[in-house]
Nucleic acid binder design. Sequence first.
DNA 1: AAAATATGTAAAGCACGCTTGACATTAAAT
DNA 2: ATTTAATGTCAAGCGTGCTTTACATATTTT
Lengths: 69, 69
Amino acid sequence: MVKNKIQELRKARKVTQQELADALNVTRQTIISLENGRYNASLTLAHKAAQFFSTTIEELFIFEDEENI
Amino acid sequence: MVKNKIQELRKARKVTQQELADALNVTRQTIISLENGRYNASLTLAHKAAQFFSTTIEELFIFEDEENI
DNA sequence: AAAATATGTAAAGCACGCTTGACATTAAAT
DNA sequence: ATTTAATGTCAAGCGTGCTTTACATATTTT
C-alpha cells in the first residue's frame, strides 16, 4: 500500500476535502478514501494532486517497498 | 491518455519486454500495452518502472493535459 | 442552543489496469 | 533454410479505483 501526504498538505493549506475534490475533478469520497488509505490513487490522479500542491508525485506519495533513502 | 518513454528507455538499455516485465513483476502483455498506449500504468507500476530506469515518474511519463513548460 | 459546515461510514455498480492463454509475424542465430 | 527469440494481436476474466446515494458524527458559526 502506498501512503501519501495529501491530508497533511490539505490541512496545512486550509482546503476542505470538497474543495480538493473539485480541484482534482473527483468526488469527496475519493479524497476521503485516499487520505484514509483505502486505496491507491491512479497515476493521473496522483499527478493532478501533485500539481495542486505544487510538488512531485515522488514527494507527495510514499512508496514503502524500497529503501527510503 | 498519459504517454511514456518506456519503450525508448528499454531499447536504449537493450532490455527485452520479457526482462522488463520480470523486473517490474508484471506480465509481458502489460509492458506491450503500456508501450503501445493501450492503458495507463497504476501508480505503483509507474513507480517501479521509474526506479528500474533510475528516473522519476514525472520524467518517465508525459502528462499532456497541462501546459508542458 | 440551533443551524450549518466538515468529515466519516456503508454499499452497490461501472470502468479499466493487469492476467492468462493461445496464436501470428518478424528478426536473429545456428 | 530452419530454429529460436522478440514483438505483437485478440479475447475473457478478476480486482480495484472511482462514483453515487444516503446517512451519521464532529466541529464551527451564529
